[in-house]
Amino acid sequence: MSASGGATGPADLDRVVHEPARLLIMTNLFVVDSADATWLLQQTGLTWGNIASHLRRLEESGYVAVAKSFKGRKPRTTLSLTDAGRKALLDYRERMLGALSPVDPPAGQDPRFEG
């Protein structure tokens, strides 16, 4: 059962979070309070273009807050996961585990499921 109490199937997964690059961005932002774009670029190994497009999607979904400011004459972009973003990532984790846990392979077929 998911945190929200709904059914837990792969179809219920939040597709905004499910996309690998966005998941990478969200997990990296999850472990910090905030960071700038250069840090995110270094952590994820994505390109500027990729980061920009995925951040736009995450910002539209209300999962990432983008704050723009100036330090001296240099622009600075500070990124942080919103409360909704943190909740979405935790829900995703729970749903993913829920979606995988009912798998019931025949005994002995997959050694990873041996006790």
Binding site: V31, V32, R93, L97, S101, V103, D104, F113, E114, G115
Partner: peptide, 30 residues
């Protein structure tokens, strides 16, 4: 199951391990 554990038990443990692993991974990431 070689250890006398039922399938559902071992799957439950696998899910629990996966949950711990996910937490560990976030810790490692940080």
């Amino acid at each position: 199951m070689g250890s006398g554990m039922s399938d559902s038990d071992s799957i439950g443990i696998a899910a629990e391990e996966a949950a711990t692993m996910a937490q560990d991974d976030l810790k490692t990431l940080e």
